[in-house]
C-alpha cells in the first residue's frame, strides 16, 4: 500500500460518500453538498498523482486542481441561486417536487 494507493482510496471513498449523498437526499442544497464532495475527491486524485507519480511536466496537477476549484465555485454559486429562485417561486426545495419539465 504505497502512499499513492492510500490517497486514491481516500479519494474514492470521498467520491462514494458524495455520490450517496447526492442520490439519497431530498433537499436540493444537500444534494449540492454531495456534488461538492465529489469535486473535491477528484481534486485529491489530481494532487495525489502529481505528488507520487512520475512527472515529465510538473505543475500540471496543481494547475488542473486550481481550475477545478474555480469551476466548482462558479457552479455552486449558480446552483444556489437557482435553488433560491425555485424556492421563491414554488415554496419548496424538495427535489422530487420540482418536476414541471418532466416528460
Amino acid at each position: 500500500m504505497s502512499p499513492l494507493h492510500l490517497h486514491l482510496l481516500l479519494a474514492a471513498a470521498l467520491f462514494a460518500i458524495g455520490l450517496a449523498g447526492a442520490l439519497t437526499r431530498r433537499h436540493a442544497i444537500l444534494v449540492l453538498i454531495g456534488i461538492e464532495l465529489m469535486l473535491n475527491a477528484a481534486n485529491l486524485n489530481l494532487l495525489a498523482f502529481w505528488r507520487y507519480g512520475p512527472n515529465p511536466e510538473p505543475l500540471n496537477g496543481p494547475i488542473f486542481a486550481l481550475f477545478t476549484i474555480a469551476i466548482a465555485a462558479a457552479e455552486a454559486a449558480v446552483g444556489l441561486a437557482l435553488i433560491i429562485a425555485i424556492h421563491r417561486r414554488y415554496r419548496t426545495t424538495r427535489v422530487e417536487d420540482i418536476r414541471r419539465l418532466r416528460g
Binding site: 462514494a16 439519497t24 431530498r26
Partner: peptide
C-alpha cells in the same frame, strides 16, 4: 431521506 435511499446507497457502495 428520499423515496428510495437503499438504491442510492447500493450504487455508491
Amino acid at each position: 431521506l428520499a423515496n428510495a435511499p437503499a438504491s442510492g446507497i447500493l450504487i455508491a457502495l
